[in-house]
Design a binder for these strands. Structure first.
Lengths: 190, 190
DNA sequence: AAATATTAATCGATCGATCGGTTATTTCAT
DNA sequence: ATGAAATAACCGATCGATCGATTAATATTT
């Protein structure tokens, strides 16, 4: 049998993410995606069951890419504070190096689509993050508060910094990053 | 001449917000909005020029409602820490009392539509918030960091708490709120 | 009666999806 | 070793449904 063309699959993948960032859910369509990917509209249905299936699978794939990068150079013997800083830096690097991926995730997470689709659970991708926080809490270095809330103080400030950076409002400089690392740490430390 | 029916205008307003929260930008349409509002499709065009005009005007109106509630009981003679807590509580109350408004804003802010539309500038609605932070910085009570970044540590944790509350994951209890007020304050205090 | 709000009906365009036909690749009997 | 059969990727064309938008006609008000 004939092989699936990975280039085609990848082209659809990238075209969808690009287009969604440019025109949003309201205006995106299979025909536009096909045209951008230089592929027939019908070919998309070889790889994906439907428009929703396409968007959902891309979401999971992008989130996987993010989690992979998030835990780079992370050693479980690292002191809590050092591990925290490492993850923060990995996170910002992912955002800056993958603007379209990051902005795609942001838009997707805010849409009702994420609840409508029965997505593979992505929380398991971030288990090491939860474990780090639990360890910090056991050692009395982190506030004894729901880990979900603690992580809120780590992720969203970085997301905001990255977005400001893309809009040209503020630079994602080492200075600004260090300020954020300090503020986030002040928020979650015991 | 015949009056415009405020009920109709309000019905369109609410129907759009409800529907957008239920089905998102990808599936919303003028016909669905009209049906939900018990109004003819053409009637919408009496009040709004286009679909984009409709969404944009609703966005500004909702943001205005939010800013009004945000500054309730706010006295500029209040100590920095007390003013901060008042605004945090006002913010969470707005989110909890107006789930559909709040979720609408969240979805809208993440979509490319917000850049595409030439919306009335909404930043002026939140000037008192910026002034409070500037005052705190002058008094040495708040970290000397860009106010935008400081506010990030106040808004997003509350947003996350409200969303968790709506999903039934965590309760937006007084305990959880107090924890957040403490964490946010730890993050921004000098 | 005049003016305006509201409606149902309808426009061409585009939507997501599917179809039959074609091409590329592998399998396998000879 | 070879070529017909089988398989599935791939595409152009097109489906019925719905889109945003407009219209002419009707209803309601002053």
């Amino acid at each position: 049998m004939r092989h699936k063309d990975d280039n085609k699959s990848e082209a659809i993948f990238h075209a969808t993410i690009e287009l969604l960032n440019e025109i949003g859910f309201s205006d995106i369509s299979m025909s536009k995606i096909a045209k951008r990917a230089n592929v027939s509209q019908a070919t998309i249905y070889v790889y994906f069951e439907s428009k929703e299936d396409l968007l959902g699978k891309i979401y999971v794939k992008v989130k996987q890419k993010m989690s992979l990068q998030l835990f780079q150079h992370l050693d479980e013997t690292l002191p809590t504070r050092d591990a925290f800083e490492m993850v923060m830096r990995n996170m910002l690097r992912f955002m800056l190096d993958n603007e379209s991926y990051f902005m795609f995730l942001e838009q997707f997470a805010a849409s009702p689509l994420i609840g409508k689709l029965c997505l593979e659970d992505t929380s398991s991708m971030f288990i090491p993050l939860f474990e780090q926080m639990e360890k910090g809490k056991r050692l009395g270095e982190i506030k004894p508060i729901e880990t979900t809330f603690l992580l809120t103080y780590c992720y969203f400030p970085l997301a905001q910094l990255a977005k400001s950076h893309f809009k040209g409002q503020y630079e994602a400089s080492e200075d600004n990053l260090q300020n954020m690392i300090r503020m986030s740490w002040d928020a979650i430390k015991a």
